[in-house]
Design a protein around this nucleic acid. Structure first.
Length: 830
RNA sequence: GCCCCCGUGUCCCAACUGGCAGAGGAAGCCGCCUUAAAAGCGGCGAGGUGCGGGUUCGAGUCCCGCCGGGGGCACCA
């Protein structure tokens, strides 16, 4: 790129040559090895969500890594000992599907892509410690995933149960609730159906309250919206279980418990509704209504989840032909079945209070069921309007509660009464369900359990881990068949029972890949550790992660699971903290022309081409400068060419410095020195606040004033110029490592600029000689005064009132009030 | 339907606990340099902060109500 015959001002450096050159130097110096900081340095763990190895890196990776690296490199410069590892989340469906397509083993695709991405990361110049590299599909890794599964099982936190589960007919596997989005498979978009299967679960629900409570410690360092999403997902609600006796057709009595958040409206419960697809409905239905129920359930099954999600569709249901007794009024209430009650939330049955719940009221209206108001809110009576009232009010028609106007008191009184009568109890209910972890796919960690006809479910002994995946399956062997491809691998699935030695079968399901990623941050501490999943000593030194950076798409799944794992490990005594990630930053997405990049829109931007055209540094700088890190950035709005120009301008400064390396800055041009020190000081605060775009803007300003100083100010030989240019190089080392290194070399220094240390700020140089004070009349600026920064309020007021422009503006009117904020402002009110 | 975030020059974006609306960049225009162009250097313009109220000496910033955009949840009893 550099050519002969150009003037000095127009000189540029060759970006691609610099990339080749410095990459080798860095490989040699290995400057980002954790543990290489000065002895006693504070340790900081910088983590970025590890990539999935599909294809090469894309613009999204480029953005998140560029932002993340600002933090990691800043910490190194500040003298911290930094752990910034990289690895791959390398199990998963895309590799398996590629293997079926290409008639090969999934490992082929996986490890080839990993090499491609690793090469791209190196070229991209991220400050990773490559010695910590891991892949979750390595047997050395999944050995410990399996080990953790067994430990969870020992603690009763991994268990099997029969249950209707989410089934993706396209991927031919079950899905966790978290992986079903709007009734669709979050991976392939197919409509999810239900199947009754025996599957493995992690008992996340046991940790629901702690997952909620411990979020208090994350407020302020995690994005509010992520905390809100997790809270919402956990879905805690306080209420009561209330028992209703149902008079069955056989004459027997069956007690049915409902969950309600409004036990205080029990006097207004006029009917009961059970989930149509729950066993309960079939168990209590009167014989005369059994056919009607069966027909209704069939109808509901046919209606897809998509239809169910439409909240405005009319209520439907069927009368079960039995009645339940209201425990406080003694009234007989009809029992209905409907699909608006969910089988797997609460108890799958509700007491309907149509006057104060719109859904119940809609149902009552369709079927002509009674409505009775028990809370008078002052609004129109819902019995007439068919608009349910849900606010606070005075209890009516509610026996002992009548006249009371306090909802909290109403709730606790009813609960007391129910508890005294043995008809109910106060309780807390969560929306969170247990985590379904079995997958009927091949490319995952096998579940380390053997099923023996005599001994039943037998865990694989620890010394036999890992249970390795067979390496002789490929192509059509891996086609989804509704059961795991492993079930058909006879040589693999047939085994000895570890307990009795008899013929037995391995569990042929594999674990959800989210199990792998729930603990990888601990494995990074020492990926070759063979005494356990991670080195507890290293965990004490480095954990928890000081800054985690990644996409908001993991707001619930990965982050919730990792938090759960950490709490379990804490309870096992393996770690001494309860939250894995102290701070979280969600970067925005890179979009193009207002829309997410996609093949169908044809608006994709190829990272490799961008790097070839503009160079790594310009692409990184463009990403960081684009805007606040958590905002989406539209590539069409940006100017990578402008970034190139800026980097060349900055680089050119280094060539203009004529003072020798090592020149002390003292005695240099004071104005330039002040600009330099002020920039460093501001950048420190901006980085702490993650305002990286402004960091770049401040660096540009410093480049601009340095250019002026060289051309028309103190001149290139002034020591302040060297100080300014060296500062620019250090600032750029966070964002544009190649340019920074080129500058550093040109300035007569040895590599690497990435570890030279952060410039120290001289507080004396942060003090301004004079400050511009603004004098306002009625809030409008009328005069400006140059004053000392430490001027007293009285002096400033005096100066302001004496200013001719101010006197003119006041024009003899009486001054009602003078507001003085020394040294910046005086406001005169007349 | 409920909850959250965001609306600042042509565009992307700055503006500390309320205190001179403009830092940086892009695009544009004008000079300098050049035989010329590119590159480089220097300079210029423009909005009163989506709309309407309110609080305040003073509001882009705080409060209320709208409009527009984005996101999350969604029959969760």
């Amino acid at each position: 790129m550099s050519e002969q015959g150009r003037t000095d001002e127009a000189a540029t450096y060759d970006m691609s040559a610099a990339q080749e050159k410095w990459r080798r130097v860095w490989d040699d110096l290995d400057p980002f090895r954790a543990g290489s900081a000065a002895p006693g340095a504070e340790k900081r763990y910088a983590l970025t969500m590890f990539p999935y190895p599909s294809g090469d890196l894309h613009m999204g990776h480029a953005e998140v890594m560029a932002l993340h690296d600002v933090i990691a490199r800043y910490w190194w410069q500040r003298g911290y000992d930094v752990l910034n590892p990289i690895g791959w989340d390398s199990f998963g469906l895309p590799a398996e599907n590629a293997a079926i397509r290409n008639d090969e083993h999934p490992a082929t695709y996986t490890y080839a892509n990993i090499e491609t991405q690793a090469e791209s990361f190196r070229r991209y110049g991220i400050s990773f410690d490559w010695s910590r590299r891991l892949h979750t599909s390595d047997p050395e890794y999944y050995r410990w995933t399996q080990w953790l599964f067994l430990k969870f099982r020992e603690r009763g936190l991994a268990y099997r149960k029969n249950s209707p589960v989410n089934w993706c007919p396209n991927d031919q596997t079950v899905l966790a609730n978290e992986q079903v989005v709007q009734g669709m498979c979050e991976r392939c978009g197919a409509e999810v159906t239900k199947r009754e299967l025996n599957q493995w679960y992690f008992k996340v629900t046991e940790y629901a309250q702690r997952l909620l409570d411990d979020m208090d410690a994350l407020v302020g360092t995690w994005p509010d919206r992520v905390l809100a999403m997790q809270r919402n997902w956990i879905g805690r609600s306080e209420g009561a279980h209330v028992d209703f006796d149902i008079e069955l057709a056989s004459g027997e009595t069956r007690t049915v418990t409902v969950f309600t958040t409004r036990p205080d409206t029990l006097y207004g419960a006029t009917f009961m509704v059970v989930a149509a697809d729950a066993k309960l409905a079939a168990e209590v239905v009167a014989p005369a209504q059994a056919d009607a129920l069966a027909a209704y359930v069939e109808e509901v099954r046919k209606a897809s989840d998509i239809d169910r999600l439409a909240t405005d569709r009319p209520k439907s249901g069927v009368d079960l032909g039995v009645t339940a007794t209201n425990p406080v009024t003694g009234e007989q209430m009809p029992v209905w079945a409907s699909d608006y009650v969910l089988a797997d939330y609460g108890t799958g049955a509700i007491m309907a209070v149509p006057a104060h719940d719109q859904r119940d009221l809609d149902f009552a209206k369709v079927f002509g069921l009674p409505v009775r108001r028990v809370v008078d809110t002052g609004e129109d009576n819902p019995e007439e309007t068919y608009v349910a009232t849900t606010g606070d009010g005075t209890y009516v028609n509610s026996g002992p509660l009548d006249g009371l106007a306090d909802k909290a008191a109403g709730i606790s009184r009813i609960i007391e009464q129910l508890e005294a009568d043995g008809r109910g109890t106060g309780t807390v209910n969560f929306r969170l369900r247990d985590w379904l972890l079995s997958r009927q796919r091949f490319w995952g960690a096998p579940i380390p359990v053997v099923h023996c006809p005599d001994c039943g479910e037998v865990p694989v002994p620890e010394d036999q881990l890992p249970v390795r995946l067979p390496d002789d399956l490929k192509g059509a062997d891996l086609k989804p068949k509704g059961v795991s491809p492993l079930a058909a691998a006879e040589a693999w699935v047939n085994t000895e029972c570890p307990s009795c030695g008899g013929q037995a079968l391995r569990d042929s399901d594999t674990m959800d890949t989210f199990v792998d990623s729930s603990w990888y941050y601990l494995r990074y501490l020492d990926p070759s550790y063979d005494q356990g999943p991670f080195d507890p000593e290293q965990a004490r030194e480095w954990m928890p992660v000081a800054q985690y950076v990644g996409g908001v798409e993991h707001a619930i799944l990965h982050l919730l699971y990792s938090r759960f794992f950490t709490k379990v490990l804490h309870d096992m005594g393996m770690v001494d903290f309860v939250e894995p990630f102290s701070a979280l930053l969600n970067q925005g997405q890179v979009i193009n022309q207002g829309k997410a990049m996609s093949k169908s829109l044809g608006n994709g931007v190829n990272l490799g081409e961008m790097i070839d055209t503009y160079g790594v540094d310009a692409v990184r700088l463009t990403m960081v400068f684009a805007g606040p890190p958590e905002d989406d950035i539209d590539w069409a709005d940006l100017s990578p060419g402008g970034s190139v120009k800026f980097l060349q301008r900055a680089w050119r400064l280094a060539g203009d410095v004529t003072s020798p390396a090592g020149t002390a800055p003292e005695g240099g041009d004071v104005a330039l020195r002040k600009a330099t020190h002020k920039t460093v000081h501001e950048v420190e605060q901006l980085i702490e606040a993650h305002r990286f775009n402004v960091v770049v803007a401040r660096t540009m300003e410093l480049v601009n004033v340095t250019r002026k100083a060289i051309d028309s100010g103190c001149g290139p030989a002034d020591p302040a110029v060297r100080e300014a240019v060296e500062t620019v190089a250090v600032l750029l080392s966070l964002v544009a490592p190649y340019t920074a290194e080129e500058m550093w070399e040109r300035l007569g220094h040895q590599p690497t600029v990435a570890r030279v240390g952060w410039p120290s700020v001289d507080p004396a140089l942060l003090v301004e000689d004079t400050v511009t004070a603004v004098v306002q009349i009625q809030g409008k600026v009328k005069a400006r005064l140059e004053v000392a920064p430490d001027i007293s309020e009285a002096d400033l007021e005096h100066l302001a009132m004496a200013d001719p422009a101010v006197v003119r503006a006041i024009d003899g009117r009486p001054v009602r009030k003078v507001v003085v904020r020394a040294p910046k402002l005086v406001n005169v009110v007349v």
